[in-house]
Amino acid sequence: MSAVESSLREIGDLTDAEIFALTQNIKDEEASRNPLISPLEPLSTLKTEYEAGAQAFVRKIESLQQPPHSFAGIRRARGDGNCFYTSTAFAWISGMMNLTSENRKSVVESALLDLEKSLNSLKAVGFEPIVYEDFYEVLTDLIRNILYPVSTGTVLNPASLLQQFQNAETVNSIVIFLRLLISSYIRLHPDDFEPFLFNPDTGDMVDIKRFCEGWVEAVGREADHPQILALSRALKLPIHIAYLDRSGGDSGTGKVDLVEFDSVEGETSPILVTLLYRPGHYDILDKKAEEPAEFLVS
């Protein structure tokens, strides 16, 4: 019996709980090798990774580098099932930091006000303050830190933001708060979502409660269209997703499908989040190829 056969047989003897623990360990181990959010790197490094393989991917990356997209960098997120949430949170907060100083104050303050108002939605759908108040505090403290020195004595800068996103407890808190925000938004707008909710494993339709409990509130469950749409609307934040897949084939034009989730039609937002989607994973796209020079000094 080969090693593979013998290990397969052993897996067959395990209980569900043991298999769950095992896959969880593999996921955790894989995940812990990568940072939750990495420093910017040139998009050309990603292209190099595909050069030996899928040409469709190479062409699409090239087209993302060119106008009208003109992306130069990628910021990778850890593949732990939370990558959509981690990426969006990072890109959103860093987007607020990058605004001109007169814009920044009003955008940050209205974001804080909206988050405070969103607590009413959380309460309205039955979440108890005990389960969300800590997460709310972590997220709003970080956003407030864009304008005001909080406990650290300095305002947030690109380096300290990246550092905050290395802290698992901080990131987990933010991810869970976004998940609860989405869940409450979907539950309060049933007509917009109910017809589009499916169990991603079986393809069966599911009701709102089951969907929110199983695929929004549960830790580590990946996000799909309904979650992205709900978050975009709840935060009034346009989120664009560039799909990097094999569609169009290896000899295709390299045209990238860009799906735009815009919060409210006609409303313009000073911040735009663009994520790169490869099957099962989200990273952040950036117009810059690498971190700014002053990054290392601070």
């Binding site: 709980a17 769950f20 005990i130 389960v131 969300y132 869970i176 409990e213 509130e217 549960a218 830790v219």
Partner: peptide, 16 residues
């Protein structure tokens, strides 16, 4: 030992 989804992969921090 208990077999219940919320104690495994359906856990959410909204549970207490």
């Amino acid at each position: 030992a208990i077999c219940l989804d919320i104690l495994k992969d359906n856990w959410s921090p909204i549970l207490t």
